[in-house]
Write a protein that binds this DNA or RNA. Sequence first.
DNA 1: GAACGGCGGAACGCAACCGTTACGTCGTAG
DNA 2: CTACGACGTAACGGTTGCGTTCCGCCGTTC
Lengths: 186, 186
Amino acid sequence: MLRGDITVAIRNAVMNELAEVGYGRLSIEAVARRAGVGKTAIYRRWSNKLEMVMEIISDVAERKVPLPDTGSFAGDLELLMMIVSKALQHRIASQIIPDLMAEAARNPQISETLQRALRTHQQAVGEKLVGQAIHRGELPEGTDADLAVDLILGPLYWRLAVAREPLSDDHLEKLTAAVTAALRAS
Amino acid sequence: MLRGDITVAIRNAVMNELAEVGYGRLSIEAVARRAGVGKTAIYRRWSNKLEMVMEIISDVAERKVPLPDTGSFAGDLELLMMIVSKALQHRIASQIIPDLMAEAARNPQISETLQRALRTHQQAVGEKLVGQAIHRGELPEGTDADLAVDLILGPLYWRLAVAREPLSDDHLEKLTAAVTAALRAS
DNA sequence: GAACGGCGGAACGCAACCGTTACGTCGTAG
DNA sequence: CTACGACGTAACGGTTGCGTTCCGCCGTTC
């Protein structure tokens, strides 16, 4: 039986290595070195870099985030944006996510894995959010959940992961208000 | 004197190579091969990969986009969003931009170059857009240009460069309307 | 027509990784 | 106490890329 503590060490090493050098430059040897483990231990678990990274990433990415339900759309939205912004400011995540997204643009397998892990899940969040709001009468009947997701995640991702500018509480508040207005008007 | 046609061939090769394999895996040898050029021709121009890529990218990125001024905020916004979405759907750009953004997260020199090339310029677009609209009375006095940029570029970038979902004319229209509403309300 | 300089090509020594193999150690299960 | 299996280490041959050097070719300049 494969030893669990070794597997954990490898997983951590992969995450850190991914954050530091990115998928393109990640090497099995470096992972082994960092994990304090032989290459054999890695090849015993996965047959190559892609498979290894994909399995580890899906695992992490599929951890469910609780869908917000605070009782009001404003509350749900604020909570969701807080959660997402915290996640995007996490040291490891903020390096790994853009890197894998870029990699997904040229590797169909990575693309598919990320889609399944992120889109399925996060789109569900958006749909639930919008659905609840419509049901409560806080948003008009035909509100486009797809559009809502773009409007909620887009600006956050842009500012935190792309432009890498700070996100003050004040700015987050304005953003929340703006998104609310945008959705109400649609 | 260095031959101009050779320089052009190298520049093109770098762009295509960047798009195909990304910065992390880009190698001087591959660039030379692709450009049909000796490695010596490259080292005669730049001293290493980073310097080469940075010079070529800044050149491309600093080409000025005409600031929209159609006479109305709605027109300006629609035009800007069209331009940006076209740019983000360009084959080469859509691969290179997320890749370099990810790389910038771990390489300060790349980060700085991109900031200067993109932010300075695109932020100016946002500020002009908002400034014109305020001047015309189409947006309230204190509208935050920073926020506007987040709201305009964020959803587009998210959808096109991250989620990689198609952007229909219909969706673009809804997005424009939503952003307008958001900014008016702020 | 001679000198110069950019060019491609080839090879250099060096380093990093690949994926695989052989070996000896050590903990655990039977 | 024995057998098994996962472990780390070390080495394998092969590939790729680095940055440099030397060569001979060829077009331009004077």
